[in-house]
Design a binder for these strands. Structure first.
Length: 223
DNA sequence: CGGCGGGCAATG
DNA sequence: CATTGCCCGCCG
């Protein structure tokens, strides 16, 4: 979309400031949703990152919202840039939410969370196991936090050769990250997992270490 | 063990 | 298209 600066949904970002990106990225599309924002890459056909603002009230509201389970290709993207349902079907990978369905505070946001613009090809065991634990731990943290908590979630492509699925060639991440920032405490930390089943390093890394890995300055301008 | 949240595919 | 049943991993 031409909405390259998230003009319509800055509320999902700390201090209303989207991350600073490394030079040279192309094919990017900024997408606003009710409860999250996606910077989408037409090269990988996955998000670069997904941004959320969470708080206790939004997660309490989310508990009353039923999971929709209706995945869909993102019609706001050019057809040539979209991930398609057929790309994931039979691929052996799960359609892994970046902004989790269980975080969504309204029915509309729940439905929107099933856009393939919010998905990456994820190892099934990783998604239902260690990653699900990270998501639940993050919700538990937010429920106990004083105010708004900002979360960035997305894939990393650090393998020598990135494998792809489907006719569109949706790129399979080597890693997934989730950065949590609590302005009330000034703290930030990041989960960094390989996109595979089995034991993971559950110890978070620093925000600085994540920035070093990805070249994305998530919290520039944040306190 | 059951429940939950993350998914899948077959069936009408 | 929605419904149904199933798998996975983790937790209390």
């Amino acid at each position: 979309m031409g909405d390259a600066d998230f003009a319509g949904c800055r509320e999902h970002f700390p201090n209303g400031q989207p991350p600073a990106l490394p030079a040279g990225l192309t094919g990017l599309h900024a997408l606003c949703f009710d409860a999250f924002a996606v910077l989408y890459s037409s090269e990988t056909r996955t998000p670069v990152y997904v941004a959320q603002r969470l708080n206790r009230a939004s997660l309490q509201a989310a508990r009353a919202v039923g999971r929709s389970d209706h995945f869909y290709a993102e019609a706001r993207l050019p057809a040539s840039a979209r991930a398609q349902l057929e790309d994931y079907r039979g691929s052996g990978y799960a359609r892994g939410h970046m902004a989790p369905a269980a975080d969504m505070p309204t029915e509309a946001a729940m439905a929107q969370s099933f856009s393939l613009a919010n998905m990456v090809p994820q190892d099934m065991g990783h998604n239902s196991g260690p990653w699900n634990r990270i998501e639940q731990d993050t919700r538990q943290y937010v429920m106990r936090a004083r105010g708004d908590v900002y979360v960035f979630t997305g894939p990393a492509y650090l393998a020598a050769r990135t494998s792809r699925i489907g006719d569109s060639g949706v790129a399979v991440p080597s890693h997934l990250f989730k950065l949590v920032h609590d302005p009330a405490t000034g703290r930030a930390w990041a989960h960094w997992h390989q996109n595979q089943a089995g034991p993971q390093a559950m110890k978070p890394i620093s925000e600085e270490a994540l920035v070093q890995k990805l070249g994305i300055d998530f919290l520039h301008g944040a306190d």
